[in-house]
């Protein structure tokens, strides 16, 4: 099987604390995968290692058949990975259009027309076209999340990692987000960290459950929903569902 992304025995400990422990993980091209688990299960640490923000203690990561374990973050992005932050991280004092242009420009370089086209398309796609000239600092929180997403899209990534994209969004915005992700499904592979079980069950092709830094279960939404282990570890608590 040719996975787009795979990890083998990927581990990270902080001091004595095992945040992620020997995770084997495979992501098929074109898939929408959700990564769920209770708070502190190691989800963010895991994806931080995938994108290169955190160095693993041991184990390996491969992207498109190539070992990227030692590659710096910017080089991984250049290979076609994109990451949107859990806590909104945009250039608050640069115009919305420039935020997205910065994302597009790495790939398109000096071609100003192409950058402008790509930025406008990404903004339109998330519904921020009317706000191109605004400063992100002046946007609502929901719109800032969408801008973050547009910056991901403008990179035309082969793998898009979304760290809790619907956190803090209104219900109507979540509906629009679901439409957008379904629309993207044919174009790119998506790894979604998500607390909102409604979003997960509707969008994900497969779900991986992390608990105490280890893979507790993996399967289709229906299988995960039926799993007793997941019920006790996660859904049973009910708090985040």
């Amino acid at each position: 099987m040719s996975a787009l992304l795979s990890t083998r025995a990927l581990s990270k400990s902080f001091g004595g604390l095992r945040a992620v422990h020997e995770v084997d993980f495979d992501l098929a091209p074109g898939e929408i995968r959700a990564l769920i688990g209770p708070n502190g299960a190691g989800k963010t640490t895991f994806v931080s290692m995938l994108i290169g923000r955190v160095a693993p203690t041991s184990g390996s990561i491969a992207f498109d058949g190539r070992d990227i374990t030692r590659l710096p973050a910017h080089a991984r992005v250049a290979l076609g990975m994109a990451y949107t932050f859990q806590i909104t991280s945009v250039f608050a004092r640069l115009e919305v259009a420039e935020n997205v242009a910065l994302a597009a420009r790495r790939r398109l370089g000096r071609d100003r027309a192409a950058v402008a086209r790509e930025s406008a398309a990404a903004l339109d796609r998330v519904g921020l076209g009317a706000h191109a000239g605004a400063l992100p600092g002046d946007l609502s929180y929901g719109h800032q999340r969408l801008l973050e997403l547009a910056m991901g899209l403008a990179q035309r990534p082969r793998l898009l990692i979304l760290d809790e994209p619907t956190q803090g969004l209104a219900d109507s915005e979540i509906e629009a987000f679901k439409v957008l992700i379904r629309d993207l499904a044919g174009e790119t592979t998506i790894l979604l960290i998500e607390h909102n079980m409604g979003v997960v069950m509707e969008l994900a092709h497969r779900i991986t459950v992390l608990n105490f830094g280890e893979v507790l279960a993996e399967g289709s939404p229906a299988e995960i929903h039926a799993s007793a282990a997941v019920q006790t570890a996660y859904l049973g608590t009910g708090a985040d569902a």
Binding site: A82, F85, V90, F91, L102, R105, R106
Partner: peptide, 20 residues
């Protein structure tokens, strides 16, 4: 423009794929 992006938020610029 990348320099300005680094000034504003270097971690974000790095994760847009720029070699900071």
């Amino acid at each position: 423009r990348v320099l300005i992006a680094i000034r504003e938020n270097d971690e974000r610029a790095r994760l847009l794929g720029y070699d900071i």
